[in-house]
Design a protein around this nucleic acid. Structure first.
Lengths: 126, 126, 126, 126
DNA sequence: GTGGTCTAGACCACG
DNA sequence: GTGGTCTAGACCACC
């Protein structure tokens, strides 16, 4: 599994793990029904506490993205339309775009960056 | 000053204030050299602790966006090329785009949303 | 046997099996003295581990609802007055009703739902 | 605060706390905007670890029932219609009613118990 | 003062 | 083997 955590990232580790796994699912690296690695293995790989990963998995289960079967591992849930409100989705986007604008990038360049990131994100995804 | 804070927002209040002010600067509402309102006034307006606003101003100063002159208020700094690494700018963008993709939005719709947000963001900006 | 298990159900599989069988007994589908299908058959039908079903049967035996005769299968026990304390029966009910109330349902609607569920539950029961 | 945990309850402590607080909100004991006691105080009162209560609060925040303001305590959120699916609400009810039926209670008595519990639940609630 | 996160390690429950 | 929960205690972030 290709999860990396960043020491300098302000987000808590468990949140980084959540976001990384969301990314893997979004990109199609982890597909419906695919088994996630055991909590203890991820913890060992990343050199963090078991609890930290367990918290991440619990959060993912709470969001309906994975199904945890006690004693039998966790798998990616079948995709049901996320219920996130539009605003919850746009807010982070707006924040990110604001940063780019603040950095002085002209509109055209921002669009170009977005296009590039989207290409990277959806490459190979279905 | 048109700063609003959202009770239900997970970000700490000081961070919301920071982001709001960044937005004002990005949109050109606050231009180079413009004076920011006194910490005490913002705190009173928003009904939050004075320390909270002071922390926000300190953060903005740390990022080089404003200059705080002890006893003489704070002003918007002259725009110097931001030192943020490219990656620091792209990371939040990538995260936001991932969320949109996870929600099942097709690429075209994501682009449309980005365009819309950019228009709102840069409206009236210099 | 008409047992179904739900991937997305948070309850452990063995508990789902226990509850399903309780339902069958409550509705009279399985009557006193009726033989339960062999553990191995249920396990095969559901595609789960044999141990999981064995645990369910053990639990049912522990509650006095079935009699397991080593080497000779399991049968529904004769109905003896349950020893569950009143509180043990009311607690889950109270919890379920609390959820409905929290969802904002008016009292009348809750009663209507209860009536409906009871009708479904006892249909065809003895 | 009137939270009690039951040693013999199968649910984890943090879940019991979540359910207790939900009950307090559902019954109107805790109204919108009311402050919840500090995590550490609840932990001390119940004689459990701080983390256990923190987990409960996080869960409640995740469900949108409370707003946690870092450094400034937690308050009951304004009630927004819960998004729980109908099935998620009915399942526990069905399970509880099944237990009552299994205990041999006639339909009329079950209805009477439900009415009684509802009265207790909604007493004084708005 | 408040809540948040993480660790190390124990013990339990499920399959 | 899997995941779940809890503890004790540390340290951090926010108001």
């Amino acid at each position: 599994m290709f999860i990396v955590i960043d020491e300098n990232d302000r987000r808590p580790i468990y949140q980084q793990v959540v976001d990384e796994i969301k990314g893997l699912i979004a990109r199609g690296v982890l597909r419906e029904g695919a088994a996630l690695p055991p909590v203890r293995q991820v913890a060992a790989d990343l050199g963090v506490n078991l609890n930290t990963i367990a918290t991440a998995y619990r959060e993912l289960q709470g969001e309906g993205l994975i199904n945890i079967r006690h004693g039998a591992g966790a798998v990616v849930a079948s995709r049901t339309a996320s219920e996130k409100t539009d605003d919850e989705l746009r807010k982070p986007l707006r924040a990110a775009l604001t940063q780019l604008a603040l950095a002085g990038l002209p509109r055209a360049e921002i669009m170009s960056i977005v296009t590039e990131e989207l290409r990277g994100l959806l490459k190979g995804a279905r």
